[in-house]
């Protein structure tokens, strides 16, 4: 499945006990896909087993900064997140 730009997504809970590229401050956050960067080996799987063949689509997701840090700035935080970390919002 490929998510198109504009798709609303919610990040999952950060998995503990292993490697991940989902920063803790961005778990359970609502954002919008702004770019699709292609398919890459999933770091979470590769770190545990270099031969793990799992690939995952990578997206740039934009989050309103105020929704992550309510006392923060009025801007945007963008992060590159694998599809494994995302759920689509209806």
């Amino acid at each position: 499945m490929t998510l198109v730009a504009g798709t609303r997504v919610r990040t999952r809970e950060q998995r503990t006990g292993g490697h991940t590229r989902l920063p803790r401050y961005l778990q359970h956050a609502q954002g919008v896909v702004v770019a699709s960067l292609g398919s890459f080996p999933l770091p979470d799987a590769v770190v545990a087993n270099p031969n793990d063949p799992r690939q995952s689509e990578l997206y740039t997701v934009a989050f309103p900064a105020w929704s992550i840090f309510p006392d923060g700035d009025n801007g945007t935080i963008c992060a590159d997140l694998f599809e494994e970390y995302l759920e689509t919002e209806s």
Partner: peptide, 12 residues
């Protein structure tokens, strides 16, 4: 002027 912070979390 709004600020966009780009967190380079992965391949880019």
């Amino acid at each position: 002027t709004l600020i966009t912070v780009w967190d380079s979390t992965a391949e880019a």
